[in-house]
Design a protein around this nucleic acid. Sequence first.
RNA 1: GCCGAAGUGGUGGAAUUGGUAGACACGUCGGUCUCAAAAACCGAUGAUGGCAACAUCAUGCCGGUUCGACUCCGGCCUUCGGCACCA
Length: 820
Amino acid sequence: MVDMERDLKSIQEKWNRRWKELSLEKFKNDPGKKKYYLLEMFAYPSGDLHMGHLRNYVIGDVLYRYKIMNGYDVLHPVGWDAFGLPAEGAAIKRGVAPDKWTYNNIAVSSSTLKKMGLLYDWDREVITCREDYYKWTQWIFIKLYENGLAYRKRSYVNWCPSCQTVLANEQVEQNKCWRCGSEITKKELEQWYFKITSYAQRLLDGLDLLKGWPENIKTMQKNWIGRSEGVTIEFRIKNTDKSIKVFTTRPDTIFGVTFLAVAPENEVLRELEFDSDKREEIERYIEQSIKKSEIERSSTEKEKDGVYTGYNCINPLNNREVKLFVCDYVLSGYGTGAVMGVPAHDQRDFEFAKKYGIEIVQVIRPKDSVWDFSNGAFVDEGITINSGEFSDMESSVMKEKVTDFIEQKGFGKRSVNYRLRDWLISRQRYWGAPIPMIHCKDCGIVPVPEQDLPVLLPDSSEVDFTPKGESPLGSHKGFMNVKCPRCGKSALRDPDTMDTFVDSSWYQLRYADPKNDKKIFEKELVDKFLPVDMYIGGAEHANGHLIYFRFITKVLKDLGYLSFEEPAMALFNQGMIMDKNGKVMSKSAGNAVPVGPFVDKYGSDLARGTELFIGPAGKDALWSEDGITGISRFLDRFDKFASKYNKILIKEYVPKNEMEKKVYVKLNRTIKQVGEDIENFNHNTAIASLMELLNLLYKEEQNLSFEFLNFVIYKYTQIISPFIPHLSEEIYQGFNEKDSIFLTQWPEFDKNNLEDEKVTVVIQINGKVRDRIEIEKDSSSEEVLKEALSNPIVRKYLQDGHLEKHIYVPNRLINLIVKK
RNA sequence: GCCGAAGUGGUGGAAUUGGUAGACACGUCGGUCUCAAAAACCGAUGAUGGCAACAUCAUGCCGGUUCGACUCCGGCCUUCGGCACCA
């Protein structure tokens, strides 16, 4: 860092205070103005904010200031995603109560945000662990329950042995816990689910409305939802009155079915009768496969195995009898939990068939070659063979015909399956919103009546939350024992809390009406302020939060609490800040550079500038303090120069000579570029163009009038202000202005003065640059050619060749094709 | 394996979307100022050859289209994300 003339830290507090007096951060709800809802993903308060968080917030603040200068009434709230596991971890490790730890972190982080001078409407702050918030999280749960969208199910769930809790599908990454990285195991438990699968199609369709979302996020969601179209076909089990349904996307291969396979969890296995040996064999296999860790079971390297059930099934299309197996490569949660085995045309079935000596019947051949099965299964489209009356067709055509046939004959019907699973939301943890349900011996499950909400989380001093694999709340008698709201007899509360992603799935709605204690929010307000116009946050939430909050929005819309389909119309994914080794900066990784001390040392403007100049906001960036040097030098140069020419406020000025004209053009170009760059989140190039202009001003200072320089500095200060707000205010104040620069109107660029009168035209010979000439803007092709031909270098090249033709690109280049 | 993003000087990164590759910075080297240092200021800085003018080569690799390709097309390689037996 260089020595700066001004102490940036000393001006901070003054302006932070002044902005507050002016209510600069407040959403005015002014009907005369265009509304803009700007939202950054709220943070989990795990300590002080680090440079990664700061990037998110600074990007938002730059846009906020730019938008208010452009006349928008901007809603820009802030809050904390405050429930969650690390708070319990801190309590266990350091003996601090989770709530104390959380509120303390919030206090530290908030003070950093305020010190930075980031403009947030603090009156709208939400904290998800506060009862005035989680009351409504519980209310949402009840609404889902009342509408059949929250249900209990016993099944094999993802279990983190270290966190001692269940996890949603979205919280398992590479078979490891998203929080602690432990290997996930399976556990059979009865848990609460949200029926997100019944919104699968709407979540998919909604993506088309989201024009402002990055394509890659939409693709990720599309893949995660994973829609597949196919047919569900029923196979009778021979010598029984039962049958098995299979789902397939490849009915064109149905004549190649040589076995059937069901998942170990499949119900049919409990219904069928077996002799004792068989039963034992099957049960041993089921037990084994459920015990296996998911990674083992789902590894593609692992040999496929299974057990013959002793039952055979009938293929309704050709009446062929095939064996029925139990296989753990069949997933219980997808489709019907059973598949038809077509070894010739599915690689997994192929491997299985090889191992168990099952026949491989080819029913599709490549269009113009012979398939060699030593390469494995043939999985592409082709021409059908060995398929009775459906032989000798394009497989895609046959697929339609055979599907129609299957439907006509009643063998099965067209169906759609989704990869998406229901959202498992129960957690066996303390620090979360209690599930507002009561278990009564006589009445069953009864929701807590609305007037009894919130179900308060007991004080941490009364609860032992060291992980034991059971809900900590379960051993708190005062919490657990209630009267059944229906029959009045003794009953028990649900001991689990909700996934924190439930908390964050609706916070953007609460900001519209954060203090309402009668309702979750006033419909009128939510409808007026939402959807979010710009949502800023990391791409890591693509298949978690960003699906959940869309889901909850759709549910609340269907229930009539709001009138729009999608929570956020535009999404911007900022890149992550990495350490020198390319590791993502985070508290848990131990490489976090905290914002607080950094700002104390260098000041907010320098911190902002450094973070913004590091690279395009959408890309990952390595954190390095080297960037401070360039920015501090720049700010110092700006400050020194601007402090000389912030004396008379001149809003309009007509350039008086050529040099002023040149600078005027550059100014206009810079205004244009900075505006565009802010809208596109390319802050690095915006700052680069400001640097260019400043360099030019230094160079030409002597040739420019005092009035002109005052005019330029006014505009310059306006357009640099979103990046370095405090210093900009200092400069602006020099003009003897009382108000904030952020109350001025963002300058418009003069469309007629974006280019110089003279342009540099490149002369190419056969595509290679040989010289450049200065020429009047918009010169004709003939003029430029004439000029080029008189150029000494061109003449040299023309000596041993002739000009065959030329290409002229106006104001850019002329390419002369010279042939020998 | 499938889906997505990306590969440009010593470094971070630019390039009006097919038209001057390397803007703007950092760093390095040289100079001015200074007793000295820091800061500041001025200059040089892709590589190779040449005293020089200049020439040749350069945007992961190989081809192609074009007057002209970092940009478009075909085929690879590498890195990073997402998914992962989804029938």
